[in-house]
């Protein structure tokens, strides 16, 4: 993952975009994460017969190749489906700017290299208006924590853990195993009995039926 993310931005002036809208449940039956971009915002993008809806922002010829969304507040609330992030990434979205994000969505995004940057409402409004006037290209510099466009530069805050993950793109599992396996083993030795006791084979057979 690069330190800098650049791309064309599209205004996405909706609040409370839930992950059911980002990718409807019917597409959760696919068993892999590749190719989900086709179904991104499926019911907003296409009508009942599968034709693009002219009034949906990403169908606007001006924004078809956008890779950064400038959203409203509470982006990615609702279901924990990581498919929402996979669909955005597969479609070509590299970053989402919003006033706030659903907590689980935010965590999922970090793990898939999708940058989620929180900005104040007034800044978002200004950026959206700017993107509506004419093509807007943004560069998000994670190293310096600034967004650059035109001749301007905007500072932003992002938590350090997320920033490091986005920049290194290292597998979290490998990282945990390499650095903390000992402590995990130690922890398991001192767990209280009620917590440590899992599903024994007898109970397991009864429950499985």
């Amino acid at each position: 993952m690069p330190e800098r993310i650049s791309g064309k931005a599209a205004p996405f002036p909706y609040d409370n975009v839930d992950t059911d809208q980002i990718i409807p449940a019917q597409f959760l039956k696919l068993l892999q994460k590749k190719g989900l971009g086709r179904y991104l915002f499926y019911r907003w993008r296409f009508d009942e017969s599968g034709n693009p809806r002219a009034d949906f922002i990403l169908n606007d010829p001006r924004y078809r190749d956008a890779s950064i969304l400038i959203a409203g507040k509470n982006f990615g609330i609702g279901s924990s489906r990581e498919n929402a992030v996979w669909a955005l990434v597969d479609y070509g979205i590299k970053a989402v700017l919003a006033e706030s994000f659903g907590d689980i969505f935010y965590g999922n995004a970090v793990k898939n290299g999708l940058a989620c940057i929180a900005l104040p409402e007034s800044v978002l409004r200004e950026l959206r208006e700017r993107a509506e006037r004419s093509e807007l290209y943004l560069t998000i510099d994670l190293g310096r924590k600034v967004i650059e466009y035109d001749d301007r530069s905007l500072e932003f805050n992002v938590d350090e853990y997320a920033r490091r993950r986005l920049m290194t793109g290292e597998s979290e599992i490998e990282y945990t195993m390499r650095n903390y396996l000992n402590r995990i083993e130690e922890y398991e030795k001192r767990m209280p009995s009620f917590a440590a006791r899992g599903i024994d084979s007898v109970t397991r057979r009864i429950l499985e039926g």
Binding site: I104, Y161, I184, E188
Partner: peptide, 21 residues
């Protein structure tokens, strides 16, 4: 509630990286 990458992390390590809310 966690995403699928985290599901895998819990499977393999029985732990989760999480910021205290």
């Amino acid at each position: 509630g966690i995403g699928t990458s985290e599901v895998e992390h819990v499977f393999v390590t029985q732990t989760l990286w999480i910021k205290k809310p």
